[in-house]
Design a protein around this nucleic acid. Sequence first.
DNA 1: ATGGTGGATGGTCCA
Length: 255
Amino acid sequence: MIISTWNVNSISVRLPQLIEWLQTHKPSVVCLQETKTVDEKFPLKELAEIGYNCEFYGERSYNGVAILSDRPIMNVRKGFIDGDADSQRRLIEAEVDSVHIINVYIPNGSAVGSSKYEFKMNWLEKLRQHIQHNHDMNKQLVLCGDFNIATEDKDCYNPELVKGTIMVSDAERESLEKIKSLGFVDTFRIKNQESGEYSWWDYRMGCFRRNMGFRIDHVWASQSLAALCDSVLIDRAPRKKERPSDHAPVIATFN
DNA sequence: ATGGTGGATGGTCCA
């Protein structure tokens, strides 16, 4: 079973690339972030034509998440249960073949100390409480998406240069670690301890060409599911295309 | 310290 995640930065712009990518890799599940479209305009038919069911939670211009699968998507939930913080659509969850999937687009946070940073920190705490109250870590559970946090120094291109800034600050990492300590494993790190593998590169300053990136897109799994993890790959191919998303897909394969 | 680029949108906001 392949479970993947991809911040597409507009599903309407990226639809041809997404369709090609789905047909190449045939993932059982792909979690999308930054779809940037209202639900009425989600390209349901085009994706159904290539055999994918879709559940989505979008809004105009910003944010938006979706879960696509070639299998039935069950028990879909959108947003936080208490309804708060739903002004931004960043969370969708479902079950596929008895695997519980939580797809998140964690706020970017702009700059440490800004109001958006405060929103990010609050959202992280809200996510932790949500998982603690609504999920069973003893089940097969996935938390994946664009986390907008590089968890270790080796997950960014120049740790000294970016130390303490957005996506790598201690407070962000600690808040994310609290979620991880509920019982998640970073599947990418099960078999790969190397630095220099990133999932996001800024469009500006030729960052991709110079591999100035961050590994901020993650597939985390509960212990029982992580034990079945075969491989995790960051697929840089779509990032090399014309008009790419600034993020690369992450592909996790489970037995 | 600033700017660079890309998407949605229709003058800026967000990343």
